[in-house]
Computed example of a mutant assay.
Amino acid sequence: MRKILKEPLLIFLLLAGSMFVLFQQASNDYQSDNAEIVVTEMQIKALSLGYEKVWQRSPNEKEVAGLIQNYIREEVLYREALAMGLDKGDSVVRRRLHQKMEFLSEDIASLDEPTEQELQAYLLANQEAYRQPARFSFRQVYLSVSKRGQSSQADAVALLAKLEKEDGNAATLGDSLMVNHQFNLATAQEIERVLGREFLQSLNETPTDNWQGPLSSGFGLHLVRIDKRIESEAPGLDDVRKQVVRDWGSEKRKQTNETLYNNLRKRYKVIVQDRSNNTKSESAAKLSFNETKK
């Protein structure tokens, strides 16, 4: 007997037979209430439209017939899978159904168009997210500390005096550096990325319209002339309308999903089994609605 049970073919046949019996029983129980498949004209149009989106042309009669047969095959196997309970305990199916519920509520939320007052209120409540960054247009002349050593500061002072008198050839002065000599309306983030936070902090405190310095960076010393500074400012609604409408809609969908969940959640009594022997734990106090510990 043991030798027979060790035969792989026999084991396969036994498993296949068991699945067939289970399938037949589930199918028989399910068929009486769910034995009719109707392929509507609307569904055929939807199948044809899906084909057209993929292949950039309308399907011919033979292809439509194939689409219908594929749909029927899918529907038959889908119903039989439900009859066998194959959807139960499947995390992928659970996540997909979860997503479809949220998509449904988001579709409802998207029907709601914002008013001017709602957009203005949203912008005001989230003003910092839309604030325009400060911008600088400036020129810089670099002096290498590693190259000039102890004379770096004295060289910077002498070069600053020269630039104050005449700066027409400023781009040719100083030491070479793989950084632009001139920055045009660069944001604080862009300047920090290139020259570092220490340089940016000094730049924020530097007056405009004359040569100043030296300012320090990770590269060395810089003589700087700020030609234009645009301070950070909060924009008006017309300046950022597209972004505000998009973000308002996203927030609205989140709120709708949360409202839907909270309303549905109230239908259930949830019992969370406590893994410890304590009758009450800190986590129990944090459960919402009518959740209890067991």
Rank of each mutant, 00 (worst) to 15 (best):
K100T: 11
L160M: 03
Y130I: 00
V64F: 02
W55Y: 15
T115P: 04
V224T: 01
A46C: 06
A158Q: 07
D239N: 10
A46D: 14
Q140M: 06
S232W: 00
M1F: 12
A285K: 14
S283I: 14
E164G: 13
R79E: 06
A158R: 05
E52C: 02
S283F: 14
S281Y: 06
Q273W: 06
A188N: 09
L67V: 02
I37K: 01
D238E: 15
P114L: 01
K228S: 07
A170F: 15
V270I: 13
H222M: 01
K162I: 02
R197C: 05
R94Q: 15
K286G: 02
S18C: 13
Q43H: 09
S110I: 12
L260R: 00
P133T: 03
R79V: 01
S18A: 15
S216N: 09
P8M: 10
R139A: 10
Q120W: 03
S232K: 03
E192P: 03
A170W: 11
L159V: 00
V179Y: 06
G89D: 11
R148Y: 09
V21N: 07
K254N: 08
K88A: 05
L22G: 13
E74Y: 12
R148D: 10
L221E: 03
E251L: 07
L97D: 05
R135Y: 02
L123C: 05
S217F: 02
K280R: 14
H98G: 02
G85N: 06
N180L: 12
N60P: 04
E7W: 04
S176P: 02
N278W: 00
L124S: 14
D155A: 06
P8S: 08
T279P: 03
R265Y: 06
E63N: 03
G220T: 02
E282V: 14
Y130Q: 00
Q31D: 13
N262R: 10
V38F: 08
S176F: 13
Q150Y: 08
F219Y: 15
K294A: 13
L111C: 08
N126V: 09
S176L: 13
Q255V: 09
G149S: 05
N169F: 12
S58E: 13
V245E: 05
Y268N: 07
N180I: 00
S281T: 15
N257C: 05
N277F: 12
D107N: 09
Y78M: 12
N263A: 08
L9Y: 05
A109Q: 11
S151Q: 15
M178F: 11
D167V: 02
T206C: 08
R94M: 13
E291D: 15
Q43A: 13
E233K: 15
R57K: 08
D107Q: 11
I191Q: 01
T187I: 07
G174Q: 04
N34R: 01
E166R: 12
R225S: 06
A186L: 07
A188Y: 10
S146M: 11
A158I: 03
F183R: 10
E231R: 05
Q132P: 02
D209V: 09
Q273C: 06
L160G: 00
L111I: 04
L9I: 12
V92L: 14
R94G: 11
A65K: 09
K62R: 15
L119E: 02
T292P: 04
T259F: 04
Y78G: 07
A158T: 08
F23S: 15
D29Q: 14
E258V: 08
Y261G: 03
Y71C: 04
T256Y: 14
F138M: 02
